[in-house]
Design a protein around this nucleic acid. Structure first.
Lengths: 231, 231
DNA sequence: ATTCCTGTTTGCGCAAAAGCAAAGAGAGCC
DNA sequence: GGCTCTCTTTGCTTTTGCGCAAACAGGAAT
């Protein structure tokens, strides 16, 4: 395992208040691993034995139905913790974490969670803040699914991805990881057909630009208008 | 304020591991208050100055959209904490808490949260477990909204209410608080019309029995079949 | 008893989006 | 270059469930 630099962690919320030496301790306890695209880092229902920090890449948090369908609840961007079942008193993972792109993550055994919380100042409060934010996101998604039409949900989903993980390119904002129509329909509770039709229509209007597994939002403002929300 | 008996709290998860004297301390710091039906205990976005424990009654956790619609995300039953913004690092309430029936709740200023967490064994871990369970519920609701048809969502919603707050009566399971068709449509992301139609149909089939603001599930099994989920 | 208010039922037409089906098109592999 | 696989597009049909509208009913207040 290659030696990781302390500066990687020192800027991240959970570790922000720590000394360099403390970060070194934490890093020395971590396992670093690379995951190919399309791999399950861990799966829903399995015993939660490790928690993770995403260094590079993107993770989709997915829940499956008994009927074999699945829903993408949120995306994890680099620098964020995931698989933090212990933080919410669970001993199994509540969802599956799939890599949306090739990814690198640190992980620690859950047995260290309690230690981190007690020993490292700010770790607990920052991680609970993360939990709170995710809850916000879930709430927002429920409201969206319950009240908005497909077109608006799709617009919101694109904006969310563009905001959370967008790269500025000359033509607009590029979503930084591969997305299929099917993926998007899993986020918005619709079908890939409907997504395809809407994206085609928007492309004709110059709002987005998309190729296979790749989307650039060229006019975020018009998408925001379509999404119907102030945000 | 009338004196509250320690035994009220001693069986509840957050306080289960505490000594009687500790419970007394906690109770002495609490404010008890009665709320009429249909009142907002606190509102989305306001400064979170207190956290609550529901002693009696029922609470609906509601989120509103900019467009004036609202969605009922979950119900709180007696014995549960709510308004626990401080647990997730927030200083404003993320949703509105409406009384679904006349209710009585204890509350404490948020400034005491940190004290409770540090001083009382098990308080932190039990409350985080609650947060985890709520997250589970939210996730489940997202999956439901994204993948199930209205009929199945409605069946699930009725079952959820019946399970969480059902009273056994001779004809079946009675939902213990007043619910309107509109309320149910706010839980399932549909319209009161559709809810009314489905309930009428089910009543004809003998699955439910309903009068104004009042529902009895007479055949939970058949509802479960309709809901399409194993649960 | 009368009135008002809130909640409920029901019918009808329509639009949105799902289902079905089939063809096309990049991208990687041999 | 040809092949396969996955992803995407598009046309057509069918269905679901919403919107609108109007009437009805139980309760509470006067």
């Amino acid at each position: 395992m290659s030696k990781i630099d302390e500066s990687l962690l020192s800027a991240l919320p959970p570790f922000r208040r720590l000394e360099r030496s403390q970060i070194r301790e934490i890093l020395d306890l971590a396992t670093s691993r690379r995951f190919e695209e399309g791999i399950a880092v861990f799966s829903e229902g399995l015993k939660a034995d490790r928690f993770y920090l995403l260094l590079d890449g993107y993770i989709r948090v997915v829940r499956s139905t008994p009927g074999g369908e699945h829903v993408i609840a949120l995306h994890i961007a680099p620098g964020q913790l995931f698989g933090i079942a212990p933080a919410i008193g669970r001993d199994t993972y509540p969802a599956t974490a799939m890599t949306a792109a090739e990814s690198i993550a640190l992980s620690w055994p859950v047995s260290l969670w309690q230690t981190f919380v007690e020993k490292y100042d700010g770790f607990a409060s920052e991680t609970y803040k993360v939990v709170g934010e995710r809850m916000q996101d879930l709430h927002a998604q429920i409201v969206e699914l319950a009240t908005q039409a497909v077109e608006q949900r799709l617009a919101s989903a694109l904006l969310r991805m563009a905001n959370q993980s967008g790269r500025k390119v000359d033509g607009g904002v590029e979503i930084a990881f591969p997305v299929t129509r099917q993926n998007i329909s899993d986020m918005t509770g619709t079908t890939l057909h409907t997504v395809s039709r809407l994206l085609s229509a928007w492309q004709k209007q110059g709002i987005v630009e998309s190729t296979r597994r790749h989307i650039v939002v060229t006019e975020p403002q018009r998408l925001a208008d379509l999404s119907g929300t102030a945000g």
